[in-house]
């Protein structure tokens, strides 16, 4: 485990940069992580992030791509456009959630 300085805050992260303490997450921190990933967050990005956070709070697991599509109502194609080169991993990191563990 490591800590990371971001958006004027110290946050605990895993070796791969995922939050280990979701309570340290703020919208400003999310903005800063997105910038690291080369993404400028728009309303469409926030819709994904908000869904992931809400779903995680309810189920305790990170939603799969299929669940984001079926339950969150966000088309898979859009997800790949919003978070290129690894949509679920990037979205999870920005949302302050754990690394995806599922194969799908």
């Amino acid at each position: 485990m490591a800590t990371k300085q971001i958006a004027g805050k110290t946050v605990s992260v895993s070796e791969e940069g995922y939050f280990t303490d979701p309570s340290q997450w703020t919208r400003e921190v999310a903005q800063a992580i997105a910038v690291e990933e080369g993404i400028t967050l728009t309303d469409a990005h926030w819709k994904v992030i908000d869904f992931l956070k809400k779903d995680f709070a309810a189920t305790g697991v990170l939603a799969s791509m299929r669940r984001i599509n079926k339950t969150g109502g966000i088309p898979t194609k859009d997800l790949y456009e919003l978070f290129p080169d690894g949509p679920l991993k990037k979205a999870a990191r920005i949302a302050g959630l754990p690394k995806p563990t599922s194969c799908v």
Binding site: S64, M65, R66, R67, N69, P75, T76, K77, Y80, S102, V104
Partner: peptide, 18 residues
């Protein structure tokens, strides 16, 4: 249960994923 889609839906998903 594992959120692995049926084959036809999986094909659509892979296509949508590029």
């Amino acid at each position: 249960k594992l959120d692995i889609p049926p084959i036809d839906e999986f094909i659509e998903m892979i296509n949508a994923a590029g």
